[in-house]
């Protein structure tokens, strides 16, 4: 059965337009990538509230903070590499330290960027953003959730970072399905009591595929969509540790500093030992290629999830 595919970037563009109507003080900035990030959709609808900043990301972030200081809700978008690493100091000082109402919405996160190669495959952004005090971090798993997250970002105060991928993504939630998205909450999409797979972003879909394959062999996994990485749903993580035999985290990000790190930190500190395994990019730069080939080569396909679960069951 083929899945319905929707691009989360388009969901972002459409949601910005809706939010533009709801919040007259919402403005959008982009750094010469509005056609890719889809902020162009907002720009066409609200040209006077869209600011093209050119290929000058540092200036974009600090300008966003200046606009926020005058009461604007500011969305700033570009690719995840440029939206975080390139402008880390600007985010640290002007957004996080200043607790500014700036929303950095990055597209092209992770290795599914594909053929552009490692220069454009951002696998450290969650780590970089989550260590900043005041900063909240989200990695939605599909277009529907992207909509809800973007709405949350606009209606709640504070510095926030969200990342989606470049590619079309299978719909996990139907358009009206998802009223439950809340900052600091995770969702159990499918329940099971053998092993919990805690995933974010594109890996939620791979985890769901893996679950189906494993069910055929009688293994019941619980799949958790942990779209809110900071703050994180600690209760839900501990619940998984207690109710299932093991936890696997999986993310399109380095195993260092991302979702896997957050979960392991919580498990270690809460003296809640359970078997635990991180799946992610294992501290290397990847390469050009089709997303599905990259997932296969770098250990993030549904099959890899299946294998990891089976190993943990032993």
């Amino acid at each position: 059965m083929s899945k319905e595919m929707v691009n989360p970037r388009i969901a972002y563009g459409e949601t910005l337009i809706e939010l533009g109507k709801k919040h007259p003080n919402l403005v959008v900035l982009d750094a010469d990538l509005s056609k890719s990030t889809k902020t162009i959709m907002f720009a066409k609808k609200y040209p006077n509230r869209f600011f093209e900043m050119g290929i000058a990301e540092a200036n974009m972030i600090s300008t966003a903070a200046g606009l926020a200081s005058c009461g604007k809700i500011v969305f700033a978008s570009t690719f995840a590499v440029f939206a975080t690493g390139r402008v880390y100091d600007q985010i640290r000082m002007d957004v996080a330290y200043s607790n500014a109402n700036v929303k950095i919405f990055a597209t092209h996160g992770g290795i599914s960027v594909g053929k552009d190669g490692a220069s454009h495959q951002m696998i450290e952004d969650i780590a970089l953003m989550r260590v900043l005090p005041n900063m909240m971090v989200f990695a939605p798993s599909d277009a529907t959730q992207t909509r809800r997250i973007v709405e949350c970002m606009a209606s709640n105060y504070g510095p926030m970072y969200a990342r989606v991928g470049r590619a079309n993504a299978p719909l996990i939630y139907k358009k009206d399905d998802l009223k439950e998205v809340k900052i600091g909450k995770g969702i159990i999409i499918e329940d099971g009591d053998d092993i919990s797979i805690i995933a974010c972003g594109t890996m939620v879909d791979h985890a769901l595929d893996a679950r189906k394959l494993l069910l055929k062999e009688g293994i019941k996994t619980r799949v958790v969509d942990m779209y809110s990485i900071k703050p994180i749903d600690k209760k839900l993580i501990l619940k998984c540790a207690k109710e299932t035999n093991a936890i696997i985290t999986t993310e399109e990000h380095s195993i260092i500093g991302g979702l896997g790190s957050v979960v392991s930190e919580i498990l270690a500190e809460e003296e809640c030992p359970c078997k635990f395994k991180r799946m992610g990019i294992r501290d290397i730069f990847c390469e050009s290629g089709e997303p599905k080939d990259l997932f296969a080569k770098y250990g993030l396909s549904a099959n890899h999830v299946v294998k990891t679960v089976k190993k943990m069951m032993k």
Binding site: V27, N48, R49, F51, A58, N59, M60, I61, S62, T63, A64, A65, G66, L67, A68, S69, C70, G71, K72, D89, Q90, R92, M93, D94, Y97, S98
Partner: peptide, 25 residues
């Protein structure tokens, strides 16, 4: 104090943001 500074090079961009907001409003 309008802006948190100390890392040099940011302030003009921040000021641009405040000036843009002034124009917009």
């Amino acid at each position: 104090v309008e802006a948190s500074t100390g890392s040099l090079g940011h302030g003009l961009s921040f000021a641009n943001g405040a000036a843009l907001a002034g124009k917009l409003d």
